[in-house]
Amino acid sequence: MTADDHQLEKLISLTLRSGVAVAVALGVVGGVMFLSHHGTDRMDFSTFLGEELPYSTLGGIAQRIAGANEGLSIAQIGVLCLLMTPISRVALSIVGFLRERDWIFTAISATVLAILLFSLSMG
């Protein structure tokens, strides 16, 4: 393993940790807000509502935040940050491999990123 690889490892480790930290912070803030306003609301998850709820799209989440004091939307943004963490890890690897002039692995990382973006576009 080269010195460049070690630098890349450090950067990746930092990305992963900060992504998780942001997600946790938003989850705590959103969760506390949700419980303080809706703590006594009845929740039922035995029926699947899927896309009828606004939490599956960015627009839906944004509307909720703008509309009411909606902690769940903030928590959901935290979840989205969590999902973005591995994606940014892959994006970072592309830069790392480019700097090492490792064209094969630049291409492999770029392909993995393309697959993830394709999956995002389907969701």
Binding site: A23, V24, G27, G30, G31, F34, M43, F45, L49, G50, E51, E52, L53, Y55, S56, T57, L72, S73, A75, Q76, G78, V79, L80, L82, L83, L116, S119, L120, M122, G123
Partner: peptide, 18 residues
């Protein structure tokens, strides 16, 4: 990412799980 778009990820379950 696919499940998110289909509404499988509900924040009221996701945040305590996370």
């Amino acid at each position: 990412a696919i499940y998110f778009g289909r509404g499988y990820i509900h924040p009221a379950l996701a945040f305590p799980v996370m």
